[in-house]
Amino acid sequence: MPGILIYAEVQKGEIKKGSFEVTSKAKELGGEVSACIIGSGVEALAPELAKYGADKIYVVDGPEFEKYEPEAYVQAFAQVAEKVKPGIIFTSATAQGKDFTPALAARLKVGSISDCVDLSMSGDKAVAKRPMYAGKAYAMVEAVGNPQVFSIRPNSFPVNESAGAGAIEKVTVNLDSSKIKTMVKSVEIAASEEPDQTEAEIIVSGGRGMKGPENFKMLEDLAHTFGPTATTGASRAAVDAGWRDHAYQVGQTGKTVSPNLYIACGISGAIQHLAGMGTSKVIVAINKDPEAPIFTKADFGVVDDLFKVVPPLTEEVKKIKG
């Protein structure tokens, strides 16, 4: 079993759940599990990776890594990879992971396999399952080069506590600053504590049936009632109408999501939308049109006016949650 090196991503002072998911998966596959964490003031977070199976944790910590900048991060990680010589690299296919991973693989002169939803070993080769056409099809893909690099879609693997040796090593990297051409001037993150749609466990989504931007408040209320792992989404129709920002769009030209629960409100279910949320574990459709295609994919359907269903649903969920 080749050694596995994980990129542990830090956002808002915490390691992302997706990084723990890939650490857990690495531990399950066997072999030596290493992780590399990069940032400013991140050393204290390193022991958490040991809980999920990291035997060795490399820490690249310095003020120059305060803001994510792909070139600096790629240089740092590549130097750690040079030292560790892993056979396999895992990252989580978060928003940052999707920026970082292809750049890292290109630097290591290998190909990477992105957004994998499953993975198994065949000898020294990892074979990944990944969606294509936003989930209308799946491919089993193998990497030819060494190391084999995979970014793994959040929520694909469970987080399991299974301790690794957890030896922590601080690494000093030499950055070639002549290659760092971009300068991050500012980063503005909305105050909202909602998770990204690709990482959320529950998504309450609205479509054309929402009738206007003001009505999305109702979906936000329902999402908040479910708790901090829930967020809202939107169909292309709602985004193209200008009711919701594109960051909320679920579907082939938006985000492909895989939550435990997807509640589609006033969404008819265009092919490109169904592709983007078809792997949700449980789908609920609320739509007054009984012929809406979304009902053919939904585990639970409510044929009624969403404006009359969602508010009492929020109240019922509140009661159950106590």
Partner: peptide, 9 residues
């Protein structure tokens, strides 16, 4: 970027 945007030169 996740949850917002970044301005880059």
């Amino acid at each position: 970027v996740e949850g917002g945007h970044a301005i880059i030169d």
